[in-house]
Amino acid sequence: MIQDGRILAPLDVAAFDETVYRELLAGPEATAQELAERLGCGSDRLVRALDRLRARGLVSRLSGRPRRYAAAEPDIALDALIREREQDLTRLRTAAAEMAVLYRRERVGQAGAVELVTGRDEVARRFLRLQHTVRRDMRMLDRPPYALAATNPVEPGALQRGVRWRAVYAPEALEQPGALQEIHALVAQGEQARVASGIPVKLAIADADAALVSVQLEQATTEAALVHPSALLDALVQLFEFIWAAAAPLAATTRTSPLTEDDRRLLDLLLAGMKDDAIARHLGLSTRTMRRRMKNLLDLLGADNRFQAGAQAVRRGWL
């Protein structure tokens, strides 16, 4: 960050030291006395600044008498300082991660493996914090009701960082306005999405290090449990993997698939286990028209029912 016109402040170069360095860059090599006269300062202060700049590799002292000083080439000298600072930041990140482990371990020792979180705003805050901490693997079970907006602002950035993000959606989640479009957009960015009926809880697990699981689903009395490393957390991981293995994949656009966008939306809803009337409402069709389209889709896939349709679409690589 540039401070008051200074460019070397992020490298912990003092304001006066930067002034001396700039003076040497702009003019020829000089003695300490000459620099002091050019800058209108005391020679003792100037010598101390030159010593600090020399220690940082920004100034070199030439041989001969009287002693003269010259500025080091900025691209070389500053690059070395920047690499030094990057190494410091890397060590700081490692230390921060280690301290975070100690912090969580201490809190687990004080509060036990489960911490109760109450209130919509606090649950939302903990959920966002959990997502920001994920580094490798995020597992989620998603179902309504939603106390807050269902849109997730954190996930796209995590996907760009290479986080493996798996989500299983309840059929009711797909009935939310715009939900399918948003999920398809996230799938295009790398999310692995599936759908399963009977999801019992909302659940988010970050790297198998911590989980946030719903305790109370009613919007007026939102409660969740933050679960730290424990047998309970292991059980929640197994619950997710069990549901994930049994869930059906959501349809995604592929170049080789003959399915139209409308076909994919219909197939998504069929695999989600929605009833015919709910599918028709979601697609803005009459139940009769929806059933006719469903029959055409089953015929295209050579399937007798919706479950066979899903299996056929997967086998042909259309999902």
Rank of each mutant, 00 (worst) to 15 (best):
A97K: 11
A97Y: 03
A97N: 09
A97F: 03
E98S: 13
M99F: 07
M99G: 05
M99R: 15
M99Y: 07
A100D: 15
A100S: 15
A100C: 07
V101K: 11
V101Y: 05
L102P: 01
L102A: 15
Y103Q: 14
R104F: 00
R104G: 01
R104P: 00
R105Q: 10
R105L: 07
E106H: 08
E106P: 00
E106W: 00
E106M: 04
E106A: 09
R107T: 02
R107G: 04
V108Q: 11
V108A: 12
Q110H: 07
Q110D: 07
A111T: 10
G112A: 05
G112L: 06
G112H: 01
A113E: 15
V114D: 11
E115W: 04
L116K: 09
L116F: 06
V117G: 03
V117W: 00
V117H: 01
V117I: 15
V117E: 00
T118K: 06
T118P: 00
T118N: 05
G119V: 06
G119L: 02
R120P: 15
D121V: 06
D121F: 02
D121K: 05
D121A: 14
E122Y: 03
E122R: 13
E122S: 06
E122N: 05
V123G: 07
A124M: 09
A124C: 06
A124F: 07
R125M: 07
R125N: 09
R126A: 10
R126Y: 09
